Measured scan of single mutants.
Amino acid sequence: DYEVGESVTVMDGPFATLPATISEVNAEQQKLKVLVSIFGRETPVELTFGQVSKI
């Protein structure tokens, strides 16, 4: 299970290999909103559970 505030690594898509912090969890739809730090700015990205891995 994923929790808000948890650190994960993006495994898929254009942000693969980047660390991210979970900002929202939708367990019903198996989706997460995460904040990816790009060029010093936090960018919100919506991903599925399968696109991230716990650190």
Rank of each mutant, 00 (worst) to 15 (best):
P19Q: 14
V34K: 00
K33A: 05
K54V: 06
D1C: 13
D1W: 14
E42Y: 10
L35D: 04
Q29P: 03
G50W: 10
T9N: 07
G5K: 03
G5T: 02
T43D: 07
E46P: 03
N26D: 12
V36A: 02
E46F: 08
A27Q: 13
T17N: 14
P14N: 05
V25A: 03
L18T: 04
E3G: 08
V36Y: 00
T17K: 11
V25T: 04
V10C: 04
K33H: 07
D12L: 08
P14K: 08
E28D: 12
T9V: 15
K31V: 10
K31C: 08
E28S: 11
L35V: 13
G13L: 02
T17S: 13
V4P: 08
I55V: 13
V25D: 00
A27D: 09
N26E: 05
F49M: 07
P14C: 09
P19A: 11
F15I: 02
F15C: 07
F49G: 02
L32V: 10
P19H: 13
L35H: 08
K33G: 05
P19E: 12
G50A: 14
T17E: 08
Q30K: 14
K33T: 14
I55R: 12
S53T: 11
E6I: 06
I55K: 11
L47R: 01
V52S: 01
E28H: 10
I22N: 00
T48Q: 10
V8H: 01
Y2K: 01
R41Q: 14
I55C: 10
I38M: 08
L32M: 08
G13T: 02
Y2A: 02
T21M: 10
Q51W: 04
L32A: 02
S23V: 15
K33R: 10
E28K: 11
Q29D: 11
T48G: 12
I55G: 10
L47A: 03
K33I: 15
A16K: 11
T48S: 12
P14I: 10
I55F: 08
T21A: 05
T9D: 04
E28N: 09
T17R: 10
N26S: 08
L35C: 09
E46G: 04
V25S: 03
N26K: 07
L47G: 00
I22D: 00
E24V: 08
N26L: 10
M11E: 07
P14H: 07
A20S: 04
Q30I: 03
P44W: 14
A20D: 01
G40P: 05
G13S: 03
S23I: 15
Q30F: 07
P44H: 14
F15M: 05
Q30P: 02
D12I: 10
F15S: 02
F39Q: 14
S37Y: 09
F49H: 03
A27H: 14
D12N: 09
V10F: 03
V10P: 02
P14Y: 07
Q30M: 10
S53V: 11
V10W: 02
V52W: 00
V4E: 05
I38F: 10
G50I: 10
V8E: 00
Q30Y: 06
V10N: 00
A16V: 08
V25G: 00
D12Y: 12
F39H: 14
L35F: 08
R41D: 11
R41I: 15
E46R: 04
G50Y: 08
Q51H: 04
V10K: 00
V45G: 03
Q29H: 11
V8S: 00
L35T: 09
G40H: 04
S7V: 15
E3R: 13
D12P: 01
V10Y: 01
A27P: 10
F15Q: 02
G13A: 02
P44L: 15
F49W: 09
T43S: 08
V8Y: 02
G40K: 03
T48F: 12
I55P: 09
D1S: 14
K33W: 10
I22L: 03
N26F: 13
I55T: 11
I22T: 01
S23L: 15
L35R: 07
S7F: 12
Y2H: 04
K31H: 06
E3I: 13
G40C: 08
T21Y: 09
V36W: 00
K54Q: 06
L35W: 07
I38T: 05
A20L: 03
A16D: 05
F39Y: 09
Y2N: 02
T48P: 06
S7A: 12
K54P: 07
G50Q: 12
D1P: 13
P14V: 08
V4S: 04
E6A: 08
G5W: 04
E28L: 11
F49P: 03
Q30H: 10
T9S: 06
K31R: 12
V45L: 13
F49N: 04
F49Y: 11
E42V: 12
K31W: 11
P19I: 15
T21F: 09
Y2E: 00
T21L: 12
Q30D: 06
V8C: 05
V34I: 06
A27T: 12
P19F: 11
A20K: 02
P19M: 14
T17Q: 11
F15Y: 14
T21W: 10
Q51T: 04
L35E: 04
L18P: 00
K33D: 03
K33C: 09
I22W: 00
T21P: 02
V52R: 00
Y2T: 01
F49V: 04
E42K: 07
T43F: 15
S53M: 10
E6W: 07
E46K: 04
T43L: 13
V4Q: 05
L47I: 06
R41S: 13
L32R: 00
A27K: 14
E24Q: 09
V52I: 07
I55D: 09
K54S: 06
V45W: 06
E3K: 14
E28M: 11
A27E: 11
F15V: 02
L35M: 11
V36K: 00
T48W: 11
I22Y: 00
K54Y: 05
T43Q: 12
L18A: 06
I38K: 06
L35A: 05
V34T: 03
L47S: 01
G13D: 02
K54R: 11
T17D: 10
L18G: 03
K33F: 06
D12V: 13
Y2C: 05
I38C: 10
V45Q: 05
V52D: 01
G13Y: 02
M11R: 09
S7P: 09
D12C: 13
A16R: 11
A27L: 13
P44K: 14
I38P: 05
Q51F: 03
I55L: 11
G50E: 14
L47E: 01
T48A: 11
L18K: 07
V8P: 00
Q51K: 04
M11S: 08
G5L: 03
T21R: 12
S37F: 09
E42Q: 11
A16Y: 05
I38Y: 12
A27S: 12
E6K: 05
S7C: 13
S7I: 15
Y2W: 13
G50P: 06
I22R: 00
L35Y: 08
R41G: 12
I55S: 11
V45M: 09
T48E: 12
T21H: 06
V10I: 15
K54L: 06
Q30W: 05
E28A: 13
T21D: 03
P44I: 15
V36D: 01
V36G: 02
F39E: 15
R41E: 14
L32H: 00
S37K: 14
P44D: 11
Q51P: 01
R41F: 13
L35N: 08
E46V: 08
K33M: 10
K31P: 01
G50L: 12
V10L: 05
V25R: 02
A27N: 13
K31A: 06
E46W: 15
V36L: 10
E24I: 06
T17C: 13
E6L: 06
Q29S: 12
E3H: 14
E3Q: 14
Y2P: 03
P14S: 06
T9H: 08
V52A: 04
M11T: 12
E3T: 13
V52T: 03
